[in-house]
Design a protein around this nucleic acid. Structure first.
Length: 277
DNA sequence: GCCCAGGGAATCG
DNA sequence: CGATTCCATGGG
């Protein structure tokens, strides 16, 4: 389609992949703003709204504006070598079975700030309510992009008071969201630095934020900074690990512990692992 | 009313 | 250190 100025007013881009499930990747609890839409999914990343659909090995990303969509391949992890990662994980027998069932999930490369705030909201909370709070957060404080709302900027949130977040109904997490925003916007917590420094140092830096403990720090490292060696331990993982790997995660998974974590998480939640004998 | 949810802070000993 | 308790909110 053409707009009044003669340019295209929508964009589409296709990516080719294999051994990848879009629905499993979007529904495994690493992102919170995508919803089913027709035969695909629709969601907002930062200040861009996209729709995604899968047809076999073909992934199609679309936008209703004229904008480059090349970033979507990196965003979904389509350029990472999962044949190699899955092969590494599969050298352990039990991990191999789980990878065989869940190895179509990829770790996405989500925006750092958005991931940090989202997982602060996630603490002691359930996924439907996390999604609702994040959408309200965007509607209340994100830029109106015309039909959808961008994720709020750290600088915007840093200027808010706790009572400004009352409408968000996020309970005791309100001051946590603001503290994270202040530290990110004043440079106390620097994304560039977190990407360079050793994992345990980055983890401690993130845990300096109020409301950020080991679990939220590891989710931010894994989903927001693509540190694949981070291993978030939530209630599901703790239960699954006690049953499947009481001795701890196999050595072969150490470099890609976060990938293994997503597989185990998905396996425990969706494959009825805990009900089986 | 109860329990739980992709936890973490405060406060013990 | 580790173990307990409390924390807002909403859904089942």
């Amino acid at each position: 389609m053409k707009n009044l100025f003669g340019g295209a007013d929508n964009t589409e881009k296709t990516f080719f992949t294999s051994g990848f499930s879009l629905s499993d990747t979007l529904n495994c609890g690493q992102c919170f703003r995508f919803r089913p839409c027709g035969d695909g999914f629709s969601g907002v990343v930062g200040d861009k709204k996209i729709t995604l659909r899968q047809d076999g090995d073909m992934i199609t990303a679309a936008s209703d504006r004229n904008e480059d969509l090349g970033w979507v391949g990196d965003y979904l992890g389509l350029n990472d070598d999962y044949a190699y990662i899955n092969k590494m994980l599969s050298s352990d027998e039990k991990l191999s079975e789980i990878t065989g069932r869940c190895g179509t999930i990829r770790i996405m490369r989500q925006p750092f700030w958005e991931t940090l705030e989202s997982f602060i909201i996630s603490q002691n909370n359930n996924i439907p309510r996390i999604q609702k709070i994040i959408e309200r957060f965007c509607e209340l404080f994100g830029e109106d992009m015309g039909g959808f709302y961008a994720f709020p900027h750290a600088e915007t949130v840093a200027g808010l008071r706790e009572e400004d977040l009352a409408e968000l109904h996020c309970g005791y997490r309100a001051p946590y969201l603001i503290d994270a925003a202040r530290r990110v916007s004043d440079g106390t917590v620097s994304e560039d630095e977190l990407r360079r420094i050793p994992l345990d140092v980055a983890r401690k830096t993130l845990m300096g934020i109020k409301g950020v403990g080991p679990k939220v720090a590891d989710c931010t490292l894994l989903f927001g900074l693509h540190r694949l060696e981070a291993f978030p331990r939530d209630v599901w993982i703790k239960r699954a690990m006690a049953e499947l790997f009481p001795e701890g995660l196999p050595e072969c998974a150490s470099c890609y512990a976060g990938v293994a974590q997503q597989y185990i998480f998905h396996y425990a939640r969706n494959m009825g692992m805990l009900e089986r004998d």
